[in-house]
């Protein structure tokens, strides 16, 4: 398979309003649009893209998706490049370990490729991808459960009161491991110990900046359910971290 190099591809996907724009005229515009930073939560300083930026990205995606539907493997190649970091991070957020994240993310892309023909143009592609990753993960969990393959960080039950079956790691962390790394691991363990749906909602909301509406759309749940589960998940996370006395100095 011979797809153009990344640099050539990027330039080929710049979009203009009506007429040809001169080469490189796009970057200053994009830069100007990208200066805005916003906050959604009190402490969330994730970058918020401007509407223009979003519209451009959306338009480019539409073209890529259409080309994928027409069987253009290079357009799919570009979609993988654009979405791989987000998909992999989301898979890691919900699967909790690198191996499962890799399996889930790869399988999700294969599923995207096979079912892109069914994707409706008016739907949000990002939401659609998040839904596919979620479904792949839940399917894998179901499969693992039916085959009784219980891994070290498997859970006893999938309902909201499930308890982690994690085996305690008694080995102390090496002294040179940075404090933040240790803290991140503690938070990761706490997240992993949450029930599936709580973990998925927490990951979508806090790590992927999805709104209640988008999460409801991704999980096919009423917004009220999403809100109450998120609230419960936050409380549960707090309780789990509370036991780690060193975290709250």
């Amino acid at each position: 398979m011979l797809c153009p190099k990344r640099s050539e591809r990027l330039s080929a996907f710049a979009i203009t309003d009506k007429q040809a724009c001169s080469w490189g005229a796009f970057s200053p515009l994009s830069q100007a649009c990208r200066t805005g930073r916003g906050t959604r939560l009190l402490f969330n300083t994730s970058r918020v893209k401007s509407d223009t930026d979003k519209a451009i990205t959306r338009a480019e995606e539409q073209v890529l998706i259409q080309r994928c539907k027409d069987g253009d493997i290079c357009a799919f190649d570009e979609l993988v490049i654009r979405f791989q970091k987000r998909v992999y991070n989301f898979a890691y957020g919900i699967a909790g370990n690198y191996d499962d994240a890799n399996d889930v993310a790869q399988e999700a892309f294969v599923r995207v490729f096979n079912s892109i023909g069914t994707f409706r143009g008016d739907a949000n592609f990002t939401t659609w991808i998040y839904r596919i990753v979620t479904n792949v993960y839940l399917d894998e969990r179901k499969k693992a459960k039916s085959h009784r393959q219980i891994s070290l960080d498997e859970y006893v039950d999938l309902d909201e009161n499930s308890v982690s079956r994690q085996i305690e790691d008694d080995n102390p962390l090496p002294a040179e491991v940075a404090e933040s790394k240790e803290r991140n691991q503690i938070v990761r363990n706490a997240i992993n110990a949450l029930p599936d749906y709580q973990r998925i909602i927490m990951t979508l909301y806090h790590l992927h900046d999805r709104s209640y509406e988008e999460i409801a759309d991704i999980l096919h749940l009423p917004i009220g359910t999403v809100k109450s589960r998120l609230n419960r998940a936050r409380q549960a996370l707090k309780e789990k971290l509370e036991t780690e006395s060193e975290l709250f100095g």
Binding site: L41, F43, N44, S46, K85, Y88, N89, Y92, Y98, A101, R183, N184, V187, R188, I191, M202, H206, L207, R234, L237, K238, L241, E242, L247
Partner: peptide, 11 residues
């Protein structure tokens, strides 16, 4: 707790 969650690095 939520601040710690949001500060988790991307992989």
């Amino acid at each position: 707790a939520l601040m710690m969650l949001e500060e988790m690095p991307q992989v």
